[in-house]
Nucleic acid binder design. Sequence first.
DNA 1: GTCATACTACTCGGATAAGAACTGTCCGAGTGGGGTAGG
DNA 2: CCTACCCCACTCGGACAGTTCTTATCCGAGTAGTATGAC
Lengths: 154, 154
Amino acid sequence: MGEGVEWALHSCLNLAWAEPGEAVTATRLAAFFDLPAAYLNKQLQALARAGIVTSTSGPRGGFRLARSPREITLLDVVTAIEGPQDAFRCRQILRRAPTGSETVDYRKACLVSQAMRRAELAWRRELAEQTLADIMAAVESRSPRTPERTRANL
Amino acid sequence: MGEGVEWALHSCLNLAWAEPGEAVTATRLAAFFDLPAAYLNKQLQALARAGIVTSTSGPRGGFRLARSPREITLLDVVTAIEGPQDAFRCRQILRRAPTGSETVDYRKACLVSQAMRRAELAWRRELAEQTLADIMAAVESRSPRTPERTRANL
DNA sequence: GTCATACTACTCGGATAAGAACTGTCCGAGTGGGGTAGG
DNA sequence: CCTACCCCACTCGGACAGTTCTTATCCGAGTAGTATGAC
């Protein structure tokens, strides 16, 4: 799994803690975590394409969350960065086997594929059940100063 | 996730269906699925290093399962090929943040990391709960001729 | 006929390239604000 | 003083290299069986 997922998740949290009306530039987000700004910008573009954040060009521009943190799941962010395809994708190896058939879709028929798919669904479910708001609440419960400190250092 | 995982899983099934005393060479397994033999051999080596299969050199050599299919989980095979490290590994991005500390292990403290870890644990649990024997039983239930047909075509 | 020996064919095992994906960088298109000149 | 226009700095967006990981290939070490020749 790519490193950009971690960047995107933390950036989304910072965007959620930022001033509501204010857009945050990729440069400021990158400076916060000491990351390469241009590459972080690339990840944020992926979030924008997925409709998780909105982008504004020009002065006073930047990124902001497209909707409430309660409406953004961790799965949304991961999918936006990593892409929608499964980690395990069945190449239908059985199709070329002597016991196989050319007309069967082994992505659904193959029991190995089914088992791997079931595991990935469990993974997706866990990620889909947690929203950015959940993480924010947990962080603020542990460190109540986080929102203001984040705003101050952005 | 690498393609070798699929190869390894299906190869293990074929090894399980093969004649008990007989070793199967990488070449024969590769021919069965029409795969590059040398590269499949590499994956089988990984399985051997993980103790899932045993290898024998020379004529009449090859690979065979190191233990009963009931004692081999899908997670064992996946871990042998992909390695033991998690797909999402926390780079401790918070350490360099203004609000962060150098002395904290954010791989455990960061709530984002925890959430991702929880999801991966769910994924691992699903894979650990299914053994090769389970898959074999399900396949044989659907196509009872599979064991003999596999032996005949190996 | 039997045994020891050398040979050959076969298989794994690791070292070695080719390709793809991820990571990182750069410059251009568009935008909004501020300065400036005219009314 | 107010307004309209122009210029400029700023930001995103996509196109362009560097690096790491996956995929693929090749050749050597070791082994078991076999043929051969001596006893």
